[in-house]
Computed example of a mutant assay.
Amino acid sequence: MACCLRLRPPLYQHFNLVSINSKKRIEVPELSIRNCAANPENAHKLVLEVRERLEKEHNYLPVGKYGRDDEEMILWFLKDRKFSSGEAVSKLTKAIRWHHEFGVSELSEESVKHVAETGKSYVHDYLDVYDRPVLIVEASKHFPEEHERREDEKLCVFLIEKALRKLPDGKEEILGIFDLRGFGMQNADIKFLTFLFDVFYYYYPRRLGEVLFVEAPFVFKPVWQLAKPLLKSYASLVRFCSVKTVMEEYFTADTIPSTFKE
C-alpha cells in the first residue's frame, strides 16, 4: 500500500533534559505557525521576499523559466518548505543552478529522439482516474550500456517536464508506473533509479504522487533491497501491484495503457 510522502522530517524543537527536582524554570520556546497557504497575501509577500533574497545573495543565477525570478517556482518551493523563506532559498539555489546546468529548457522531442525510440519510457496519452499525468517505464527495454547515461537522464527529465505540462488545473502530482514484466538483471540500473528519485526530491518536490511497481519478478527483490535505502522517503511512495490492480484502480476501460490491456 502506498504511503504518504514526507519531503522533510517533522519539525521538532530540541530541549535539554532537566531534572525533575530542579527548581529552575523550564523555558519553552514559543512556536509561531504561519498558515500562509490560507492567506494568499502573505504567500505573495514571501514570494517577493525570496525573490529579493535570490537577487541580492545569488545574482549570478539565471532569470526566466526556472530562474531566480520565476515566481511560480518560488511559490512551489515555499510550499515544499512549509513557507520557510530561508529553507526555500537554500533549496531553490540548488534547483535553479541544476536546471540551468542540465539544460532543461533546451530539451526537446528531437534531442531525446534516439533514446525515446526504444519505447522504454514515455508519457501516457491519458490521465489516470485521479487526474494525474502518467509516466510509464518498461524496464525490460532498458539496457544500461546501450546508451550514454547522460542520454537516459535527458529523456527522464524531458518526460517529467512533458508530464507536468499535462497537469489539469488544480492538480499537482503525477503517477509513475514501472512495468517490471520480463525484467532481468541485465535491466538493473540502481544508479539511474536513484537519479530519477533524486531529481524529484531536489528539483521537482512533491510532484511525484505515487509509484507503481507492476508484476515485480523474484529477481527484482535484491535490486529493490539495494535501491530502497538510497531512495530515502520516496521509497514510501512505492506500491507493488499487479496488472489487474492497475486496470481496475487507476484507469478506465478507455484510458488503460495499451501495454496493460489483456
Rank of each mutant, 00 (worst) to 15 (best):
L107P: 03
M73Q: 13
H99N: 10
I96M: 07
E87F: 02
E101A: 03
S121P: 04
I96V: 15
S121I: 03
I96Q: 05
D70T: 08
S105N: 14
E72P: 03
D125I: 11
E72F: 13
S90P: 00
S105G: 09
H99C: 13
L107R: 10
Y122S: 07
E117Y: 05
S105D: 13
H100R: 15
A116E: 06
Y122R: 13
W98V: 03
S84H: 04
V89K: 10
D80F: 11
V112R: 08
H124G: 09
R97E: 14
I74Q: 02
E72D: 15
E109M: 03
F83I: 04
E87T: 06
H114Y: 12
H99Y: 13
G103V: 09
S111D: 07
I96E: 09
W98L: 05
F77S: 04
G119F: 12
H99F: 15
L107K: 12
K94I: 14
T93A: 14
G86N: 15
A88L: 02
S121G: 14
V112F: 07
R81H: 01
W76E: 10
E110M: 06
Y126E: 15
T118I: 03
T118K: 01
S90C: 05
S121W: 03
V115G: 08
V89H: 04
A95D: 06
H124R: 01
E87G: 15
E72C: 13
E106S: 14
E110T: 08
S84Y: 02
S84D: 11
L75M: 13
E106W: 01
D70P: 10
L107H: 08
G103D: 01
V123K: 00
H124N: 12
S90Q: 10
L78C: 09
V89R: 04
S121C: 15
A116F: 06
D80T: 08
E110R: 12
I74V: 12
G86L: 05
K79L: 09
V115T: 15
